[in-house]
């Protein structure tokens, strides 16, 4: 069972790398925010998997909960911050 957890978390890390591509090369700022959100939700699962591997789930589950909340607040704050910025993308205003 430990092997399955280990390889699942490695696979999740690989998927995070795929999402990171969008974060680095994404054409707009909002693309980068999507990437941050996706990486954060995978990290929550990886944290619990690490806890199961080290037999300390009771400790890691609190970290995962705090991380999920922090991820949510970060995305919310970033989108509130960028929504007043004009010219993220040079096109006419769309309503």
């Amino acid at each position: 069972m430990d092997h399955i957890f280990l390889y699942s978390s490695l696979y999740l890390a690989f998927l995070m790398l795929l999402s990171l591509y969008r974060g680095v090369f994404g054409p707009t700022v909002v693309d980068r925010m999507i990437s941050v959100n996706a990486i954060g939700s995978k990290t929550t699962v990886v944290l619990i998997l690490i806890g199961l591997l080290y037999h300390r789930v009771d400790m890691f589950v609190d970290i995962a909960l705090a991380y999920a909340m922090l991820n949510f607040v970060a995305v919310l704050a970033a989108s509130r911050y960028f929504q007043k910025r004009k010219g993220l993308y040079d096109e006419g205003p769309f309503r």
Binding site: T28, V29, V30, M33, I34, N37, V75, L76, A78, S79, R80, F82, Q83, K84, R85, K86, G87, L88, Y89, E91, G92, P93, F94, R95
Partner: peptide, 12 residues
């Protein structure tokens, strides 16, 4: 929230 940011920034 992300969709809202995109709409207000004027992305079609």
């Amino acid at each position: 929230a992300i969709v809202d940011a995109g709409i207000r920034a004027g992305l079609a």
